[in-house]
Design a binder for these strands. Structure first.
Length: 481
RNA sequence: GUCCCUAUCGUCCAGCCCGGUCUAGGACACCGCCCUUUCACGGCGGCGACAGGGGUUCAAAUCCCCUUAGGGACGCCA
């Protein structure tokens, strides 16, 4: 068998759709699994909507996801002169014909059909024009489109690797347009020519394209070319079961990135939406997936995109990520939250490693590090009101904290075991359970009631800072009533 | 409206092709317990589905038909 070649052909809309990302992932996985090539082609014939920035959104997104293409990006807009010869060929072989119907005429017929609740189909009025009629029209300078001549009866069919055998009666298909009156190709025609020229062997795309597939097959046949293998992927749906879309506010790949989702987590999640390795594995590396990826594992049913499960998967990836990488990854978020500067972080790298270590199993996204761990960077936080009620109101607490503070101040550096020893001894001295001291101290140090183990926090914050924060809290408590 | 496709826990996925091993398995979410200084993590357990109806068969989640529901496609858009 010759080399397997697959492609994605996104149109640059300035928004990198998660569905596009998943299609890319499936193509990529298939190419890698079978030793083939993955080609990127930009479908930018809609000129008003295409700019380099919009193309970059897609390129950046793919790169970020670690989905690497082997060829391209090709730009359809730069390939205009490639299509006419194919149209000529079809005209010459009589597999296509010129249609002189005006857009207005056709629109009127369509409206008419709609009014009478009839299904609209082109009436093929130009299909059997005589050579004389055609010449006459041409001499008059009448504009024409090129339509493909389809069988009137019988069945069109193809095999789909996901959906199985697909059939459609020819009476439900009409002589669709291949070339506009201005000479530019229509999508279906351009796709076939491009795929032919790029020697695409397998077309893996969303199942919203199955109707196009019937048409495209007719073009392959008319051209006398071999059709590719098809695999139509299930679609991604929203929780209300409609298709995910920008208009409804669904998040793009770019937004997930900006929210602190890791690329490997999104890749993993998307790959498993509609595909299964057939065992119970969920967290899988790219290599693992490549090893077992096959069309057999693709489920034909549309799937709902569940951001909650994505979050879970992301937290799994965060826990697996080494601390050094994590510090690098969270740096932009720390800066964005105005907690520290890049320089500040870089000069405190060892310290950052410890912060990340105690936070990582409590964070779902990279952004969470900045949100849940802000007290590591800022001391002027407010105390959580509910926490105050619960943890700052015990009788004699301020004095007890003051004693603990003094004890800690004896140390230039407080390691966690020393901190723990002090707190537990003080608690015993006061006839309290350790928790009665631990919780107020945590609130004093962080402003919140949850988080990493208190003694870790003490060690990371360091003695002078702990002292300052305890003093501040003691004063706060004394002013409570 | 017409055509195409799909149909297993709330959600994702396994089982279906090659009927019996399915009192239907895993994951997310949810609930409970354990671990524990809190929050998490982790562990254990619970809740929870074969859309409905007909066939075929000794036997159907698995095969066939109908109904219903959902999705998609119906442009001189891509």
């Amino acid at each position: 068998m010759s080399e397997i070649r697959v492609r994605i052909a996104p149109s640059p809309t300035g928004y990198f759709h998660v569905g596009t990302a998943r299609t890319a992932i499936f193509n990529y996985l298939y190419a890698r699994a079978k030793g083939g090539k993955f080609i990127l082609r930009i479908e930018d014939t809609d000129l008003e909507r295409s700019s380099q920035e919009m193309v970059d959104v897609i390129l950046d997104g793919l790169n970020w996801l670690n989905v690497r293409w082997d060829e391209g990006p090709y730009h359809q807009s730069r390939r205009y002169d490639l299509y006419p010869p194919f149209a000529e060929e079809l005209l010459l072989s009589k597999r296509a014909y010129r249609c002189f119907c005006s857009p207005e005429e056709l629109a009127a017929k369509r409206d008419d059909a709609q009014k009478n609740k009839q299904t609209y189909q082109y009436d093929r009025s130009c299909r059997n024009l005589s050579d004389e009629e055609i010449d006459a029209n041409l001499n008059q300078g009448k504009a024409f489109t090129v339509r493909l001549k389809l069988p009137i009866e019988g069945q069109a069919s193809f095999h789909d690797e996901v959906l199985g055998e697909m059939t459609k009666a020819y009476e439900d298909l009409d002589d669709f347009i291949l070339v506009r009156s201005d000479g530019r190709p229509i999508y279906n025609f351009a796709v076939v020519v491009d795929d032919l020229l790029m020697k695409i062997t397998h077309v893996i795309r969303g199942n919203d394209h199955v109707a196009n597939t019937f048409k495209q097959n007719e073009i392959y046949d008319a051209l006398g070319k071999q059709r590719p293998v098809y695999a139509h992927l299930p679609l991604l749906l929203r929780p209300d079961r409609s298709k995910v879309s920008k208009r409804k506010g669904d998040k793009s790949v770019t937004e997930y990135r900006d929210d602190g989702i890791l690329p490997d987590a999104l890749f993993n999640y998307l790959a498993l939406l509609g595909w299964s390795p057939k065992d119970d594995r969920e967290i899988m590396s790219q290599d693992e997936m490549i090893r077992v990826f096959d069309f057999k594992g693709i489920n034909p049913t549309n799937a709902i995109f569940d951001p909650v499960k994505l979050s879970w998967m992301n937290s799994q990836y965060i826990m697996k990520t080494d601390n050094h990488s994590l510090v690098q990854l969270i740096t932009p978020f720390i800066i964005e939250a105005d907690l520290a500067t890049k320089y500040w972080i870089e000069t405190r790298w060892q310290w950052m490693l410890r912060v990340v270590e105690v936070l990582k199993e409590r964070c779902t996204t990279l952004r969470d590090f900045a949100e849940n761990g802000s007290y590591f960077f800022k001391a002027d936080f407010e105390y959580d009101p509910q926490g105050v009620q619960k943890r700052f109101t015990a009788e004699g607490l301020a004095d007890q904290l003051e004693q603990a503070r003094k004890e800690m101040k004896k140390y230039y550096e407080i390691k966690k075991d020393i901190a723990e020893k002090i707190v537990r001894e003080k608690a015993e001295e006061f006839g309290l359970k350790p928790a009665a001291l631990i919780h107020p101290i945590r609130l004093a140090l962080t402003g919140v009631t949850g988080g990493p183990g208190l003694f870790d926090i003490v060690e990371i914050l360091g003695q002078p800072e702990v002292d300052r924060r305890l003093s501040r809290a003691i004063e706060f408590i004394r002013n409570l009533d």
